[in-house]
Each structure stands twice: as C-alpha cells, then as structure tokens.
Design a protein around this nucleic acid. Structure first.
Lengths: 245, 245
DNA sequence: CGTTATTTGTGCGTATGTATT
DNA sequence: AAATACATACGCACAAATAAC
C-alpha cells in the first residue's frame, strides 16, 4: 500500500520519535495506546506494535502491560546510538553541517603528531552541526596532506557557510584506496572556551562534551582526527555494550 | 504455548544467541532460514521473525532479503568490538572503591522507572573510586529489590567507609541466576553539584563527565542502574570501534 | 474482594512484495 | 523464469497485567 519506499511502521516510528524528542511526552504522560494510533494512522495494531519495537530497542520508550507506553527521554535533546564506525559515518542523516572554516592547509605540530605524521603540515576544516535549528556540536577536522587534497575537491567543504548533510569521514571512505577500518574515541568533559561558547551559544566555562576521534584505514594509517564539542543539553552519547562469551 | 514463563520467541532468541556467541556461525556461514527454524522449534515463521528482531537490534546478526541471516561474527574477520560488559566489570582491578553511603532500601520514583520497575522501591548505594590516592569518580547505584537483597549480603557494601576492589556488577553477576548480557550507556557533561564537588574535591560547576549505565541480564531484565561522575582531569573515556564487514 | 474494562504481550495464519540466486 | 528467503501488513484469538469500580 502507498509509499514510494518507506514502510508504514518506519514512518510511524519516525513520527513518534520526533514527537518524543521534541518533548511532547516529557512530563511522564503516556503515549497514545496501540488502538488509538492504529485508528489515527489507519493501519493495523500489528503495524503500530512493529513501530514500537524499534522505539523500545532504541531506548526511547518503555512499555508496561496493562498500563501503557511511556517516553524515556528525560533529556529532551538529541540522542544517538553509536556502536560502530558505520554508525559514525551515518551521523549526518538527520543533521545538517555548516562550514565555519573551509578546508585549508595549516602547520600544526600537535594535530600532526596525533595523526602520526612525520611532517607538521595538516589540512584543517571546521564546521557546526545543526539539528532542528539548534547548533549542538562544533567540530574541527585535521587531515594528512594526501587525504586533505582529496577532501578539498569536494565543493561542499570548500567555502564558509556551505551547508550539507555529508560527513567528512564518509567522503574520505569513498575516495580512499583503503577503507576506514577503525576509530579510536576519547570522551571527556571540558568547560567551553570563548570560540566554542560563541558557536554553541552557551556561556564560557559551560560544561561541554569533548569527543576526539582518530580514524584509521585497514593498514593502520591515520586518515582523520576530529575534535568535537557537544552541548550536553541537546546531545547525549549512547552506547550499547554486549558481553563477549 | 506451554512453558512456565518464558515466551517461545525469547527462548529461541536465547538459544540462537548462545550459539552465535559460542562462534558456531563464526566463519561467515549463514544461520538456518526462518522456515527451517520454524520446523525445528515447532513454531510459526512469525515467531522466528520475532526472535530475529531482538537479535538484529542487539547487533548480533544482520539479514539480507533473498540471501539469508548471518552472524555478526566476533571471532574472525572484522570484529564488532564496541568495548564490552567485561571491560566494565574489570574496572576495579587497579582502583579502590570506598563506600560513602551503605546499601539501603529507598523510595525513588525516577530510578525505579528507569529500572522499569512497577513499584517505586529500590536499593541504593554510593561510593567513590580512588586511583593512586586520587578520587576520580563518584557512583550511586540503584538496584531492584530482588537484586538489592543479594548485594546487601556482601559485607563490603554494608558499612560506610568500607574499602574494596570489588565491582557491584561483578558481585551481581556472581549471585544472579541469569548472567549480565548487556549494558546501555549514556554519557554527557554536567557541572558538578555540591555533593559531587565535595567528593571529587573540585569546585561547584566544574565540568565533569556523567555516565549512566543500565545493566540488563540475558532476559533483558534491568539489574542495575549506575550513575557516575568522573573528574575529567583524571579520567577520559576511551573506546575503540571496529568496522563490521 | 471479585468483576470488568483497558492495554500490552504472545502466537498463529494468510497474502503480497522485493531482493537474491 | 523460477525458486528461495526475507519484508511488510493485516487479521484473529487468547493471555496477562493493571486500574477502576
């Protein structure tokens, strides 16, 4: 029935997800019942259940037999499940990036050494990430010369103010001879400095989440170092860990 | 039908999960088809699909229309090594924990609902973690009643000031009938409140890393909620992500 | 205290669509 | 082109938990 591509249950899940993240069920009020939603969306109860299964596994809602369905998100910000390199590359699906400093060749000993380069020349690029008109993240990316030249060919990254839904690492993965195989992350909390505060619209010293990511190809060569600052009011970093037998 | 308590699909998912974690589908060989499993377990194809939905959302298998179902092998090839629950349980190897509030029964609606309890009674326990004479972490742990009673039997957690190298989750794993299988983490940055600042020896408002962990057993039951605050000067959270296929 | 209505959970059957082999 | 295998969607019946009466 209907639809060019997206299944009904996925569309319904997306609709509910957006409402939940907007905080429309924030004060502990419960979501509509399966029967209500089935009537509203004109689908069967089973299709509603399928949509809820995704939301449950994403940790966005919990359900109690006999009582109803309740939103989980206390922090009414932007929440993301990250568990693999592919997840990181898909980060831009529902966010916009806006270039604040176009890609350019720089000399920076610190980032060069973190990229394990023998020279001190890197390519540097800064942008912010926006979700529903809220800037929740600033990122500065450092690239080795060989990779930087490839990225500089992408017009989206060449000029200040450009807007795109791409990810740098996704573009690199397309253009590189060896694929991205690994990412090393380090997460910590810092007070916003003047630059970060200005871009995120918070006060100087405000606690922000700092995430450093180093991407490696299959040979273990560093291809990107990304340093991001997230506004915790609008972003929390979620991971699911499984036990390895 | 049948069975005292566990639904068929959950039993089937558990059975497949164990086989996968034992590596029985490790060499890229595919799992049996829905039809085969339906015959083998004497249930409908829908029930098999329900079991697979859980395994997919756990990231244990991936499915390709027209081809089949495949294990996300963690034995050979590209490992999906997100970090693991065992990593978390080994945290105490080189650190000491010191009880600041012994385990006690409390009424707390918020943590009870996050543990998905129908009652509002939880067991609560607070401690700090010390490494080389530096306090770098405070943690408050919330447990369902059944688990709390087990943990209360451990003398190390029963009195303020007690020092130990144990982890709560390690003790729970020993005493519980079903093992810990999964943990969901949420990481964000906050300013230290007066309690946290006093325990960590930093100023109020100082940026600290807040990590919420929800531990689940093999049935998906919540067994522990731990809320920790880390001093970023002495701790950063590192993860290695590998690419899957 | 039991009864009843509501709401979610489990399980099956069926039909049809789509991707792969 | 045909067979295989997963995906979507609807329908039904009954079970179990909860809440209101």
């Amino acid at each position: 029935m209907s639809r060019g591509s997206e299944p009904s249950y996925a569309m319904i899940a997306r609709s509910l997800r957006e409402q939940i993240l907007r905080g429309e069920f924030g004060d502990g009020r419960q979501l509509p019942t399966e029967a209500d939603l089935a009537t509203q969306f004109e689908v069967s109860r089973q299709t509603i259940r399928r949509a809820f299964q995704d939301l449950v596994s994403e940790g966005l809602v919990y359900r109690v037999p006999g009582r109803g369905t309740f939103a989980q998100s206390n922090s009414d910000g932007y929440v993301r499940q990250v568990g693999s390199v592919d997840d990181l590359m898909g980060l831009a699906d529902d966010t916009l990036m806006k270039v604040t400093a176009p890609i350019a060749r720089k000399v920076d000993l610190i980032s060069a050494s973190r990229l394990r380069l023998s020279s001190d020349v890197v390519y540097e690029l800064s942008f912010i990430r926006v979700h529903e008109d809220v800037t929740f993240c600033t990122t500065t990316v450092y690239l080795p010369t060989s990779v930087g030249k490839l990225v500089a060919e992408v017009p989206e990254f060449a000029e200040k103010g450009n807007v795109s839904t791409l990810t740098i690492i996704g573009q690199i993965d397309l253009k590189l001879s060896r694929p991205i195989a690994q990412a090393q992350q380090s997460i910590t909390a810092v007070g916003a400095d003047t630059d970060v505060a200005a871009e995120l619209g918070c006060s100087v010293g405000h606690p922000v989440l700092r995430v450093d990511r180093l991407y490696l190809d299959t040979d273990g060569e560093c291809v990107e170092l990304a340093i991001s600052h997230f506004l915790p009011e609008h972003y929390s970093y979620r991971i699911s860990l499984l036990r390895n037998g």
